[in-house]
Amino acid sequence: MNQDIDFDAILSKYRSDPFDYVHIHTRHTGRVRFKVTEGAQVKGAGGEWHHLPGSLLFVLYRERNPKPIYSSTFGEVSALRRELEGNFVEANEKVMTIKHPLTKREIIESILRKVLSNFNAPERAKYFFAMDIQARIDKFGPRAVTIQPGDEVFTMSLMKRDIPVYYSGEPGIIHSIYFKPGISVGHGEPLIGVCPPGRLPFIQKIISRVKAEWE
């Protein structure tokens, strides 16, 4: 089961380069004035509602309209195209890259996204586990519950109507639960991450290795 996923390759990829590279492109044509230098540390949007803008990266001037461009993530400025300073650029021109150091949580989430099969919410609604699934989760924990395609796994509560939702996808155990009962989940958002039973030890192993190895 684990032959199709090369965990060593995944791990070594993150170990050799634990960064995400966010390329910053110009949104439209205009003259560029950089506000950061190569190697500068920048921060992303902050505040409880992400309403405080991040670091100012550059200003794009067009038609006497200065448009400030802020960083959306924290990291270090790299590959800054200094030669563009003060020059006219086309739309979608790459001007710099933000080298974003991945956190432990981001790495684990990224790996899980690759190896688990997610079951997404079919509609915006409140979701609950079906009675028997919930009973089994309560008794043995989620990772002891195996589900098959066609199983009634959820109850979708929408406008006081409860509709059963049947699982479709790879059979396996419920590895991750991404929703909270009684709280609305948007359409297309993942509800659970399912993992074939044979793959579970490998996933756990890889998670514990990431936890141990990354600061």
């Binding site: 439209h28 067009r62 038609e63 006497r64 309209n65 448009k67």
Partner: peptide
């Protein structure tokens, strides 16, 4: 009476075009 464009404050969210 000014020959320039301005950006809508919601441009980020709704992709509004600059306005002359």
């Amino acid at each position: 009476n000014e020959d320039r464009t301005v950006t809508c404050p919601n441009a980020e969210k709704f992709g509004c075009r600059d306005l002359w």
